[in-house]
Design a protein around this nucleic acid. Structure first.
Lengths: 95, 95
DNA sequence: AATCAGTGTAACGTATACGGTTACAGATCG
DNA sequence: CGATCTGTAACCGTATACGTTACACTGATT
């Protein structure tokens, strides 16, 4: 039960990957093989980490794709949970 | 390093949730608050588990949304990893 | 045989997301 | 000033998620 707004993965990406290596957005985008716009959108919280992007990040930075996807999921789920009450779902008996 | 095609979450959903409770697709869709088509698509591997759907499943079956999202991610990543070679990504020094 | 519930799915619509290119404004630096 | 980096708007195409309606098929039940 996460209580606080988890940072979007882009924030983590910028702080933990770009900053330490002194990479510019332009350089990182080129390295990842995506457009500068796409990376910029992620870094500034306007876009999410797609499965393909997660694999790109894992290849470029030597991390795992799961790490990035998990962050994205935490972020996505947090937003959905906020409107959980609005979802009309019947509680079924546990299997 | 997963080697085998992970089952799509719909398969798990049908076997572990619908079957044990003797639920029809129609009944389950109604309980989840989605259309029969949407649930059918997931059950037959034509659609994925969206974050909202993951929360619906957690509410209906008393599981966690993360459980469902993780299954979806394993499935998604497996497909992307298959074409990992095609992604032109530069390897950067570890941070 | 006829009816009905359940199922998959096609056809159509909408909204959102991801990806790209181009182009522009603002900042910073030599 | 000229060069670089950045964010982002405008536009495109594609894919996904969701909905409704309608159809054909199956397997029970009557």
């Amino acid at each position: 039960m996460k209580m606080h707004n988890p940072p979007h993965p882009g924030e983590v990406l910028r702080e933990l990957c770009l900053k330490p290596l002194g990479l510019t957005v332009t350089q990182a985008a080129r390295a990842l093989g995506v457009s500068r716009k796409t990376l910029s959108g992620i870094l500034n919280g306007r876009g999410g980490i797609s499965p393909e992007m997660a694999v790109r990040l894992s290849l470029a930075f030597g991390t795992t794709a799961e790490t990035w996807m998990n962050q994205q999921i935490q972020h996505d789920l947090w937003h959905v949970e906020r409107r959980r009450k609005k979802l009309k779902v019947a509680r079924l008996p546990a299997a």
